[in-house]
């Protein structure tokens, strides 16, 4: 039986879809079989990030409403046959699938794949509730901005209330700008962790390569030599239970010695 992991944030635009695509690719590269599920119904994005938008025939709502078999709706990634996408419907809305249907779908998917990653819509209403319905684990993603952290806190509260179903959740801090953190211009990893009292899964730096790779339809975690790609690969390894050390570089209350060290090695992923 595979693991069903939902990627969620509360606030929109913080990197849920980017993280889903990249963690999916990174997990598939470790040899696991992976299914990415786009639960942002009505705002289909994940297919674009994966470069699979021209290959979508059926979608998740077609499966739920039995217009096609699950297998027919899955889009196989040409680069990696063990990576699959179940696309969202573009012309329907979040009410097209309910929590029970989602649970049933996740049951079926986890009998087929090692990892089922669910990309969720922004918000805390029905779309969010349906996206987490079949999940046993969650990845909460936020940026170090106050509004995003506040929304992440709401999400954590809602996940806590469902401890029986969602047995573990961890944080991915996205778009960290190490230089600004070093200058105390914005909150760093330790600040956000302390405020949210949550375990850390990974830190992804702000990185222009994300935008380039999105335009190419090739998630950064599939290519070497990008800091964000390495961050996502580390996240995938931690999900698989490997102990991957966090490079410690929050550079805040540091001595001048560590500041110099951090200066030459400026990111913690």
């Amino acid at each position: 039986m595979g693991r069903v992991i939902v990627i969620t944030s509360g606030k929109g635009g913080v990197g849920k879809t980017t993280a889903s695509a990249n963690i999916g690719v990174a997990l598939a590269n470790t040899g696991a079989s992976v299914c990415l599920v786009d639960m942002d119904i009505g705002l289909r994005n994940l297919d674009i990030l994966m470069g699979l938008e021209n290959r979508v025939v059926y979608n998740l709502v077609d499966v739920v409403e039995e217009r096609c078999k699950l297998r027919q709706a899955l889009v196989k990634d040409k680069r990696m046959p063990n990576l699959n996408l179940l696309p969202a419907a573009q012309t329907r809305d979040k009410t097209a699938v309910d929590a029970d249907q989602m649970k049933k779908l996740c049951e079926e998917l986890k009998s087929m794949f090692d990892f089922v990653l669910i990309d969720s819509p922004a918000g805390i209403e029905s779309g969010f509730q349906n996206a987490i319905a079949g999940a046993e684990e969650a990845i909460v993603i936020t940026t170090p901005e106050m509004s995003a952290v506040r929304d992440a806190d709401r999400i954590i509260g809602l996940l806590e209330a469902r401890k029986d179903e969602i047995t573990q959740y961890r944080l991915v801090l996205n778009r960290l700008r190490p230089k600004m953190v070093a200058n105390a211009d914005m909150m760093g990893v330790d600040d956000v962790l302390e405020i949210l009292s949550i375990k850390l899964l990974g830190v992804v730096p702000e990185d222009e390569d994300i935008i380039i790779s999105t335009n190419k339809g090739e998630p950064v975690s599939g290519t070497d030599n990008t800091r964000s790609g390495l961050a996502f690969r580390n996240i995938a390894r931690r999900l698989r239970g490997e102990e991957v050390p966090f490079m410690d570089l929050d550079a805040k209350n540091d001595t001048w010695v560590t500041k110099i060290v951090n200066f030459f090695n400026p990111v913690r992923v």
Binding site: M146, A184, D185, M186, G188, D191, W256
Partner: peptide
């Protein structure tokens, strides 16, 4: 090198949060 973080944007943000 010797910047003290008190009263910085990061500290203010954290307190407000």
């Amino acid at each position: 090198l010797f910047k003290v973080p008190n009263g910085t944007a990061a500290v203010t943000a954290k307190d407000r949060m």
